[in-house]
Amino acid sequence: MSTMEKLAEIIRTVFDDDSVEIGSQTTAHDVDGWDSLSHINLILALESGFNIKFSQKELLTFKNVGDMHDSINAKIALRGDGVGKA
């Protein structure tokens, strides 16, 4: 499955809501129970689900799901073929 689909599934699992629509513009406001306290659970789930590590700086600048998606993709690309984009 694509990064976006996997991401969406993880979000649905963490916040226990199978019905919510996840798109690149989705923010915490759109999902019930997603607040700053539970956000960290999502981050952990994403880190283990995609086998990546986020940085502090990134965490503080994510504005919506789209940002997360781009960051995850970039990390996968870095790991996948050893060639990274600067």
């Binding site: 700053s36 306290l37 960290i40 659970n41 981050i43 952990l44 502090q56 965490l59 503080l60």
Partner: peptide, 21 residues
Amino acid sequence: ILDYIFKPLQFRFRYWRDWGT
């Protein structure tokens, strides 16, 4: 305090899960 103290700390302690938070 949420953005500049809590979030960085919570991130640092994330492996302790809820206790870290």
